[in-house]
Every structure is written in structure tokens, then in C-alpha cells.
Design a protein around this nucleic acid. Structure first.
Lengths: 329, 329
DNA sequence: TTGTATGCGTTATCAG
DNA sequence: CTGATAACGCATACAA
């Protein structure tokens, strides 16, 4: 039944070409084969429209040419961008992607890691906020934006540098008192360096600053309270804000509007990520842009590099500033 | 070498449980097995942490539990949303997704279809604008938003109804002269029904209308010319616009701003797709929302339904209107 | 260099 | 109902 749909096999090609099965295999895999044999085999391949069977090869070699990508979803545009570039990077190397949406759920993450092993994937790339993520042994594992230990390579944007850049920009743009706002995991991870860099530069530049960092799960209203607390006679105490992600920055801008505070006239806002309208147009707001394509390329080349031992444990990639209407240029 | 990483096999389980290989297979596949045997096998599976090997099963059954999804990219938020829901829908049914980015390139589409067959996928879902897409034989094939023939099922939003809805809304909102704007494939396809529905309702409602439809490849400037042509003394001849996609609508709104025409005060704009800010917040603009999740569910259940014969050739799913600041509510 | 034969892990067929 | 065994398509060690 199903047999009907299956195409020709190496045996068919061998018969057609009048050579042995092994010879066909060697031609397909680009090994040394006598010219006349190679031609006969290639002709037969053309003739029959032969294409090798992935399952047969995988079973034999125990390599699936597949990398699992664990990521919350593709609804968030930054994740969608990463998925896009990672898939393209894998495709260039003749690898396929097994896409696993964690939906921020630790049980799902664990289950996907189990499933990835069952499917004998050749490596795993994970973007996870789970501080207790269990890294499997014996399989190349690369994380994005999350440092676990020196034995698990991590690829990230230069979060510290991005934080510094935001402070420098706000200073340049004439800000005299700024604040940092963020929500996220309480543990120290890569994104929390955005704050460290920001504050480092503020101190250096003699730029007065305040900050509020919420833990995952705390309600957004805490930010509203913070803003109201720092408002007197309709005037916000800050003329510059640096926010941990574009998404949060956008929400905060909405809140500011409701409070009658104008952006960028009264307060200039810089986000982080570099989300663009419809993925490819102008930035949604002024922002520190993550190099999504370079991050993708780096993850892929690292996870496929085989010798995970002499691979750096943390790779930082440069960020850039992009104006997007929430600053006064 | 690689053998180290491979987990236990059915043979290992059989040995551990003291039963035959076939019995293990029957337990794993949920077939009839004596209670005592089942227990012994399950204990051994637990003990060894056995997980079945996908490649072995695929090789034997010629079914990969994989569906190929061909789509331009995940940079566009609407595509990213579809990818998200389709992957989840497949996962629920224990299927995996082979994600193929066509990047609007016909050669890539053809190559992916070839590759999908090589990988023995169990079906293909394609979102393609290619009018000459070659549908492969003998493999379940479902398209999104693109009708080829009654033998190739197509899943789409109710584009005609969405067009009508846009006209009705604009009328309700007080518009007296409207226009439809779109760019896309010249051939009649599902999205072109947005225009048909819009015009149908305009006629019915006695709402004067104009329209401009560009072919793929024509420059955006044609839209600018159209708008300028319909502007006299800084006043646009239309007080309502319906645009084929949110993405184009956004660009047009930018152009209008540059022309000194205010949205929504001078002209109200409705787009199509239902793109939301950061994927999950408020709509980017007033829009006709496509039911992405229902589209995904429908595609998946159709492509997996086995008997492609008695499956409807076109499924239309209901759309909804969502206000997003470019209309006066 | 080419041919032959074995085994990867699984399901399915056939005997017992 | 269970056990033994063949076959799926391929890569590779070994023989020629």
C-alpha cells in the first residue's frame, strides 16, 4: 500500500546501472568511484529520479541531520526572527530543524528534551528562562541568552554593551535624569547585564538614575505605581527611560500616554531587541538592536562543530542603536 | 562511537524483561498483550528508560509522522502566527513539522517539495503565491489562501465576507467615499476576494468607491501617485480606505502622514490580517482579523485525514473586525 | 577500485 | 497470545 508512494531505492539504481549496491552508495555520498561507474550510476539516478531515504541513512549512521530548537513561541516577533534565521542557517548546512515551543513551560521543555533524544537529534539549541533547566549529557547543547556553566556554550548579544549604549545615547540626547525598568527572572542571567551596563555608564557619565526590576509573575501595575510615585504636578521625574525589552517598553509608553506624559517630548524611551513593524520595516520604537542573524549563525555553527570541548563558553555579539520615534533625534 | 549516545533498543528491553522482541513492539504500540507480559515489559522500559527509535519505525512503516509546511518566512507576523499554531496543532497529534521557508522563491518551493518527498513526509501544507506551483501526486497536500483545483483542498479565511465587513464598518463609521487598495498576484486567488466582497457591499450600501490593484513587482510609488491624484487642496477625496493587508495599510498610513492627512480624523483605514503589536497586544491598526488558529487546526486535520478524496475542496473560516486606532470608534 | 554481506531498530508475518 | 525471523534502505567492513 504505502509501498506505492515510496520511490526507487539504491538497489533499483544499482540494477538499472548494472553495478553493485555499494557503488551507488559511494556515488551518492561523493566518495572515490571510477569515472565510468560514476557516470552510469548518475544516469540511473536521473533516469529513476532516485532520492536517498532519510530514515534508512539515519538508522544506519545514527545521525539524523536534525537540530532541535527549543523556544517559547513564534508569536513574539523576536523569537520569530530567531527561528527564521536559525532555520535558514541550518538549511544551508543541509540540516533540518525540529521546532519545539516551550510556551514558557518547564515541563514542556523537559519533555521536548526527552523527545529530542528519542528522535536522535544531533544537537539542541535552547532559548529558555528556566533556571533549573536540565542539560542532557552526551549531546551538543547550545543556549541563547542564558548562561548555565562553562560546559554549556551560550550565545548572546552584548547585553552589557547594549545597556551602556542606551545610557550614552540618552545622555547625548540631552537627558538629565533616567531610569531603568525591567521584568524577568530573578537569577542573574544574560539579559540582566543590560541593567549592569546601563548603570555602569550612568555612573561614568554622571547621569543620575533610578531603577525598578520586577520578578517574573509580579503584576505590571507595579510599573504604573513606580511611574506615578515619580510624578509630581503631571511632570515625570525622568526625561529618559531604558526598558529591558521592546515589548515592555511599548506597554510603558501606553501607560505614559494615559498619564498625559508625552513621548518623546517629555520623556525619551529606548527599548531592547530591535523589533520592527511587520518584521521588516522601521523599528517599533527607539531600541538597542540584537544581531539576530549573527546569533543564529553562531548557534548553528557551534552546535554543529562536533568538538564541543574547545568551543568558547560564552559568545557576545555586538548590538546597535536604532532610532524609532521615541527619542528626539 | 556514536553508538554510545544511542539509548537502549527493543532487544535490550526484551532481554531485560525476558520476553521476545515482538512482544515489546506490541506493548509499545498498544496492541493486545497478556497482562503479565505487559507489566514485565513496562517495568523493563522504565528500568532502561527505553524510547522508541523514530528512524527505525519510519524505515519499517514508511511513515515519518512529519508534515512539511512551506511558507515564505516567519519575519512577517502573520506567517509567524500560522507557524506557531500549525506546530502546536501537529504536536497535539504527535506529528512533527518540517519547516520550509520559500522566501517567495518558486525554485525554492519546488526544491522543498522534492526534499519533502525524499524525507518521506506524510503530507504538505503550503502557503504559496506561486500561480504555477506544481502539486505533487500521491501525497496529501493542503494549501492556505490559494485555490488550485477541486482536488487540492484549500483552507482560507472568509475573504469575501471580510471585504464586506470592512465596507459595512466604514459605512457605519460615517464614511461617504471609500477606496480599496491592494498589491498582489494578478491571478484570481483567495485574497482577491477581499476586493470582491468590499465592492459588493459598497454597491449594496450605496457607498461610492474607487480602487487600485497593483501587480506583484509594481513599485509602491504607484499608490502614492494614486493618493496624490485623489487629493485636492490638501484634502483626500476619500474618508475611508480598505487595504488588502495590514502591512500595506501601515505603509499607506505613513504616506498619508507625510502628505499631512490625518488618520483617523481625515480618513479612516481598515487593514486585513489582524496583526497585533508584539504578537499578543492590541491590533497595530483597525483590521479584519484572520482566524489563524482555526486555519491552522483545519489545515492539520485535513492533511492528516488520510482519505483526501471526501474532503471539501475549499474551507472558509469566519473573520472578525477589530478596532486599532485608525478608525473613529 | 568494486562487489558482497551484515546490521542499524523496528514492524509484520508466520509458526507454535 | 507469544516467539522467532524476515525485511525496510542504507553505510561500511571486508573480500575480491
Amino acid at each position: 500500500m504505502a509501498k506505492e508512494r515510496s520511490g526507487p531505492t539504491m538497489a533499483d539504481v544499482a540494477r538499472e546501472a548494472g553495478v553493485a549496491l555499494g557503488t551507488v552508495s559511494r556515488v551518492v555520498n561523493g566518495e572515490q568511484v571510477g569515472e565510468e561507474f560514476r557516470e552510469k550510476v548518475n544516469a540511473a539516478i536521473q533516469q529513476l529520479g532516485y532520492q536517498y531515504n532519510t530514515s534508512g541513512r539515519a538508522l544506519r549512521t545514527d545521525r539524523t541531520n536534525t537540530i532541535a530548537l527549543i523556544i517559547p513561541n513564534t508569536i513574539n516577533p523576536y523569537f520569530a526572527l530567531l527561528v527564521n534565521h536559525i532555520n535558514i542557517a541550518l538549511e544551508k548546512r543541509n540540516y533540518r530543524m525540529m521546532l519545539c515551543f516551550s510556551e514558557y513551560d518547564r515541563d514542556r521543555e523537559a519533555e521536548f528534551i526527552r523527545m529530542a533524544r528519542q528522535n536522535r537529534v544531533d544537537g539542541i539549541i535552547a532559548l529558555s528562562y528556566n533556571p533549573r533547566l536540565e542539560i542532557p549529557e552526551g549531546i551538543p547543547f547550545v543556549t541563547i541568552d542564558r548562561f548555565f556553566s562553562s560546559s554549556v556554550p551560550c550565545v548572546a548579544a552584548d547585553n552589557f554593551g547594549g545597556g551602556r549604549l542606551a545610557a550614552v545615547k540618552l545622555k547625548e540626547l540631552g537627558c538629565t535624569r533616567v531610569a531603568f525598568m525591567r521584568i524577568g527572572s530573578t537569577i542573574t542571567n544574560e539579559p540582566s547585564k543590560r541593567r549592569d551596563g546601563f548603570i555602569s555608564a550612568c555612573v561614568e557619565l554622571n547621569l543620575p538614575f533610578d531603577q525598578i526590576a520586577l520578578e517574573d509573575g509580579q503584576p505590571y501595575e507595579e510599573f504604573v505605581k513606580f511611574l506615578i510615585r515619580n510624578t509630581a504636578k503631571g511632570k515625570l521625574a525622568f526625561d529618559g527611560l531604558f526598558v529591558g525589552t521592546d515589548s515592555l517598553a511599548w506597554q510603558i509608553i501606553q501607560t505614559l500616554k494615559q498619564m498625559g506624559i508625552r513621548v518623546p517630548e517629555d520623556v525619551q524611551v529606548i527599548g531592547f531587541d530591535g523589533i520592527r513593524m511587520f518584521g521588516d520595516q522601521e523599528p517599533v520604537l527607539s531600541t538597542i538592536v540584537q544581531p539576530a542573524q549573527e546569533i543564529a549563525e553562531t548557534c548553528v555553527s557551534m552546535v554543529l562543530s562536533g568538538h564541543m570541548s574547545n568551543v568558547p563558553s560564552l559568545v557576545c555579539l555586538p548590538v546597535a542603536y536604532a532610532a524609532g520615534g521615541t527619542t528626539r533625534e
